[in-house]
Amino acid sequence: MDRIPILHVGALLLVTIQVDMHDQLATNLQEDLTLRVSETHAKGVLIDISALDIVDSYIARVVGNIAQMSRILDAHTVLVGMRPPVAMTLVEMGVSLDGVSTALNVDKGILLLNKKIDD
């Protein structure tokens, strides 16, 4: 599999990453998402990584890029469901994910996105 499905729900785009991310997959996701954001005029992007055990610095950077690109296309990005070990590793590596909002789960993520869209 070299593509991650992107679901269009209301004004939001929903991405659930279920497989281990490799670099090509991450780059594809970045391209697909920016394309879909401009196509659908989505106001928010929600990326769920609760199934991921490993997030390396490249993937973290891609997520940061996605957030910035979506922002330019007028969409907010929320990253949800990061597991404790992943968070600890990212902090150890000094990755800060500036500009990316985070939430504990999809539910809270959608609430946060709607709030951001309303503001």
């Binding site: 990253l79 949800v80 990061m82 404790p84 968070a87 990212l90 902090v91 985070t102 504990l104 809270k108």
Partner: peptide
């Protein structure tokens, strides 16, 4: 700060 950033990454 590291503890706080890790919690923030998780969305707390």
């Amino acid at each position: 700060i590291r503890t706080v950033s890790a919690a923030q990454l998780m969305g707390a």
